Simulated scan of single mutants.
Amino acid sequence: MTLKLPTTNKRLLFSKIKTYDETLPSLKRVIIEPVGFPIKVSNSENVKVSAENLDLFNIYARDQWIGEIVKEGDYLFDNSIIPDYAFRVISTYPKGGGLITSDTYFILQQPKKIIRTQFKKAKFDDIIGQEHAKKKCKIIMKYLENPKLFGEWAPRNILFYGPPGTGKTLMARALATETDSSFILIKAPELIGEHVGDSSKMIRELYKKAEESAPCIVFIDELDAIGLSREYQSLRGDVSEVVNALLTELDGIKEHEGVVTIAATNNPAMLDTAIRSRFEEEIEFKLPNDEERLKIMELYAKTLPLPIKANLKEFVEKTKGFSGRDIKEKFLKPALHKAIIEDKEFIDREDLLWAIKNIKKNVREAPQHLYL
C-alpha cells in the first residue's frame, strides 16, 4: 500500500474550539494500541504499525494529539503519516482520563494475539491410559482426514471433561499432530473483550482463521469461565456476548468444513444447558489407575536430568488419586529439586518420600483429584 503524506494538517483545518475545565487532570501516561481504519480500505490489512523508537514516537504523538481529552476506550486518529488510522486508548494515568499535554508519555502496545496456531506436537503414544477416550476420538480423526465423506453428519463439537491434568489438551494436540491438522488453542477467559463488540469480533476471526486453516481443531480450554450455568453465576453482559457469539458458531449456521471444536471442562454438570447441548459428543478423561501411574512415573523418569535410584512401585499406592500432571509437578519435580539443592547425583528414596510427605503437609484441603 502506498501512503501519501498530506499537504495540509487536517487536524488544524477541522479543529474545533474547546473549552477546558481547569480541574481536568493532565495525563502523565497514555497506553494505546493500533486498531486500523474506521472503514475497510483496499490492502489496509497490510499496514502494520509499531514504534522502533518510543521517544521519537512520543514527539510525533504529542504534536498530533496535544489538547485532546481522552479516557480509556476512546480512539485517537493519525493525521499525518497514515491518515485516519485509529489507535485505541487502553489505559491512562491518572485513571479516568484527562488532557493530553506536552508532558504526556505515550506507550504503543501491540494488540493481544489470542489466536495461537503454534503448538507442541504430540502423539497418542505419549498418552498413557485414556483408552476409552482414544477410541472415541477415532471418529474425529476420520473426519479431519476426509471431511467430505461425512457431509452434514460430521463430528463438529466435542466436549472433553475430567479432572485437571488428565490429558485433555494433550489428546487434542495429538489429534492435530496425527492427522496433520492445524491447531488453535484458546482459553475461554481470553474471549471476553474489554468493550462491547470485541468478543463477537474475536470469535468471528477465530473461526475465520480455522476455516482458512482447515482441517483444523479449535480447542477452547477452561470453558467453565464463560459457560457456567446461571445457577452458579450472575451472568454479566460481556460474558453473555461471548456465549451468544460462540453458540452461533457451534450451531453450524455457517458450515465450517474440516473444522472441529473441542472444549475442555473439569465439571460438565456445572455448564449452562444451552452451551452443553451444543456438544454432540462428551468424552470423559479419568484419573490413572495403579498400572497407569507406574507407567507415567517410569516415562517421566526417563526425561529427568538426574536418574532415580529407588523402586517406583513403592510409590504407586502413595500416589493414588494423582493425575499425570500431579505426578510430574507435585511429586517428581519437588524430589528432583531437593536432590539438586543437596548436590546429589541421583534422586533417592528419601527424596521421593519427602515429596509425598510435603504434599500431605501443605495441602490442607486436598483438591478433588488428590485423595491423600
Rank of each mutant, 00 (worst) to 15 (best):
L3M: 12
K4A: 11
L5K: 12
T7K: 14
N9H: 13
K10F: 09
R11K: 12
L12R: 14
I17A: 13
D21I: 04
T23C: 01
T23L: 12
L24Q: 04
F37T: 06
K40R: 14
V41G: 05
S42L: 13
V49P: 04
F57H: 05
N58I: 06
W65Q: 02
L76W: 05
F77N: 10
F77L: 12
N79Q: 11
F87L: 12
V89K: 09
S91Q: 12
S91G: 03
K95M: 08
K95A: 10
G96V: 02
G97R: 01
Q109K: 15
K121P: 05
K123T: 15
K135P: 00
K138H: 08
E145F: 08
N146Q: 10
R156Y: 09
I158P: 05
L159W: 01
F160H: 01
P163T: 07
T169A: 08
R173Q: 14
S181V: 04
G193R: 10
E194V: 11
H195F: 15
S199M: 07
K201W: 03
E212Q: 14
E212F: 10
A214E: 00
P215F: 06
L223V: 05
I226S: 10
I226T: 00
G227E: 03
R230G: 10
S234F: 08
R236K: 13
R236N: 12
R236V: 09
G237T: 14
D238I: 02
E241R: 15
V242M: 07
A245T: 00
L246V: 03
L247V: 04
G252W: 10
H256D: 03
E257K: 14
G258P: 08
V260H: 03
V260P: 02
V260I: 06
N266C: 08
P268W: 07
S277W: 02
S277P: 00
E281C: 08
I283K: 02
I283F: 05
E284S: 15
K295S: 10
I296L: 10
T303D: 10
T303V: 14
E317Q: 15
K318W: 03
L332T: 05
K333N: 13
A335N: 09
L336R: 04
E342R: 12
E345S: 13
E350L: 12
W354E: 05
W354N: 06
W354S: 04
A355K: 08
V363R: 11
P367G: 02
